[in-house]
């Protein structure tokens, strides 16, 4: 999938510049964009390292597990077909918790483990089960409270108040999350009747 997008971006960009006589701009772009990539990397990589460190403390102190317990009643409503003490629910909660802190990369291992557990109770192994879909919909629309990379980049570009986007961002992500869960709920309901 990403291959297609990459192909599309490069081919359209170069062919279009040829046709409009702009190819010298592209020439310059190709020759200088290594510097852009490096600068982008330099501004986000210390933040990833820092937050991975902070989150490790949270993990070892059992904060993610605590969080999972708090989310338990909500999760059992969202995933009625998953047995109550199935480890999948714990991984799902940890995944959501890590996503909330804006640590997508920390969230991924929990998410993959959750999928493995859900696959164990899936009847048709090549077809997505209902709880899998609910989980992924929740995950892709996941609530982010601290978008760490965005903050890092805003700081790197000298923003006066880098964290001013946290609140509108959190509300927007909350809306898309509610939307996703609602749509998923109605599809499930209709599927049963």
């Amino acid at each position: 999938m990403v291959s297609y997008i990459w192909f599309f971006l490069i081919v359209v960009g170069i062919v279009y510049s040829f046709l409009t006589g702009n190819i010298s701009v592209i020439n310059e772009s190709i020759l200088t964009n290594g510097k852009d990539a490096l600068e982008l990397m330099l501004s986000i990589f210390p933040v990833i390292v820092l937050w991975s460190g902070i989150m490790k403390i949270a993990e070892e102190a059992g904060m993610l597990k605590k969080f999972a317990k708090i989310l338990e009643p909500i999760l059992s409503k969202l995933f009625p077909s998953v047995p109550k003490y199935n480890p999948a629910l714990g991984f799902i909660a940890s995944n959501i918790a890590a996503n909330m802190m804006g640590l997508g990369s920390a969230a991924t291992p929990f998410g993959l483990k959750a999928m493995t557990e859900l696959q164990k109770i899936n009847d048709k192994k090549d077809t997505a089960s209902v709880p899998m879909i609910t989980f992924l919909v929740l995950n892709t629309a996941g609530v982010t409270i601290v978008p760490t990379t965005v903050l890092a980049l805003r700081i790197a570009h000298g923003s006066v108040n880098p964290s001013e986007i946290i609140l509108p961002g959190a509300i927007a992500t909350f809306c898309s999350c509610i939307g996703a869960v609602t749509i998923d709920y109605f599809i499930r309901k209709r599927g049963k009747n």
Binding site: M115, T116, L118, Q119, K125, D126, T127, A128, M132, I133, L136, V137, T140, A141, A172, T173, C175, S176, C177, G179, A180, I183, D184, I187
Partner: peptide, 20 residues
């Protein structure tokens, strides 16, 4: 996990993105 039939997940995910 080797699931190939993803059913309605993509549609719901994209609608959620649009809402966001």
């Amino acid at each position: 996990i080797g699931v190939k039939k993803i059913r309605y997940s993509l549609v719901v995910g994209l609608i959620a993105d649009l809402i966001g």
